[in-house]
């Protein structure tokens, strides 16, 4: 029936504008293609941003599973990791394009709830990576999270070990807008209070949206002359900002820095950054794509998967485990 309609239209004598004809022919070709062979389902994978050591491994992990399961990936993200509006626009665009599933790592918790609800209302399988949204897992919604409670404990124990149970610290990069950050902050403080009562938190600062702002905040802290033995930076930007401030004040290596989220690797080798609690985003991407594939085959379900974090130190930075976490190879093996 559809073909008959087209053949009639095609038979019109009036010449069409080139663009319309071109579009028609393309449509014809697409219809022919879809009629004869199903295109692979496309899964949108939308991290907080692209092209970073933290999020590119997620691409690699997701792509590895997608190749096995014959799925296509649309990988894109905002150009800045604080641009929540662009991330929401990408989700809406994925819906419009009719992608078969969406994997998203929200930049912020609250603004993402409505877009995710919208996706779920359309019955599109969704996996939220990296942070809770406050929406309970349901048949089309699964979470793949880095175990932030464990991450906070890991950072606290590292601080306790470095300071041998006594000293003052500053906590930078507190971000109530991201639930994962809140969880890691609370876990850090709880663990410190429980296991290392001799470690006192001398300063707490909210996270800011960019490295320079974080750097300035750390500079101001150091300029106040508050005695600090160590800094815990709860985000990628605050870790880098704190490191820059320490270098600037000649305190790198002297004031110990325990950061979160892999970004700067060379200072870990020199001790400028003591350690970084890394998210295994490669594994998170792999599990998220696997979960989507299960959903597409009706085997999914309300799921919350926790991926253990890894403490990246000078001692293990070249280990196979860390190299796998930093793996960027999203492309097919050559």
């Amino acid at each position: 029936m559809r073909w008959a309609m087209f053949s009639v239209t095609f038979g019109k004598k009036k010449p069409w504008p080139h663009r319309r004809l071109s579009a028609f022919l393309l449509l014809l070709a697409m219809l022919a293609g879809t009629g004869c062979r199903r295109a692979l389902p496309v899964i949108a994978v939308i991290p907080r941003t692209c092209g970073t050591a933290l999020w590119e491994p997620e691409h690699a992990g997701a792509a590895a599973v997608a190749r096995e399961r014959r799925l296509n990936i649309y990988w894109n993200a905002p150009m800045r990791d604080d641009d929540i509006q662009s991330q929401i626009a990408l989700i809406d665009q994925s819906l419009k394009r009719g992608y078969a599933g969406i994997i998203v790592s929200p930049i912020e918790t609250l603004p993402m709830r409505t877009p995710i609800r919208r996706v779920l209302a359309r019955g599109v399988p969704t996996v939220v990576v990296g942070t809770e949204l406050g929406i309970a897992p349901e048949p089309h919604l699964a979470y793949v999270l880095s175990d932030e409670r464990a991450a906070g404990e890991m950072a606290a124990r590292r601080i306790g070990a470095i300071l041998r149970g006594n000293g003052t610290i500053a906590i930078l990069g507190i971000n109530p807008q991201l639930m994962s950050n809140v969880v890691r902050e609370r876990s850090l403080e709880t663990t410190l209070a429980r296991e290392f009562p001799g470690v006192r938190v001398a300063a707490r600062q909210f996270g800011l949206s960019s490295v320079p702002q974080e750097q300035q905040a750390a500079e101001e802290l150091l300029a106040k002359g508050v005695k600090i033995d160590a800094i815990v930076a709860l985000s990628l930007a605050s870790t880098r900002g704190a490191y820059y401030a320490l270098v600037e004040f000649g305190k790198d290596g002297i004031i110990k820095l325990v950061g979160f989220d892999q970004d700067l690797i060379p200072p870990i080798r020199t001790g400028g950054i003591d350690s970084v609690v890394a998210q295994d985003t490669f594994e998170m991407g792999r599990l998220a794509m696997d979960q989507i594939d299960r959903e597409l085959h009706g085997k999914g379900g309300a799921t919350e998967l926790l991926v253990p974090p890894v403490l990246m130190t000078r001692e293990n930075v070249d280990s196979a485990q860390i190299r796998q976490i930093l793996n960027l190879a999203w492309w097919p093996p050559q």
Partner: peptide, 14 residues
């Protein structure tokens, strides 16, 4: 042949 690790992750890159 594309590089497989992020900038600065290779040993000796400090």
């Amino acid at each position: 042949a594309p590089v497989q690790l992020p900038t600065g992750a290779e040993p000796g890159s400090y």
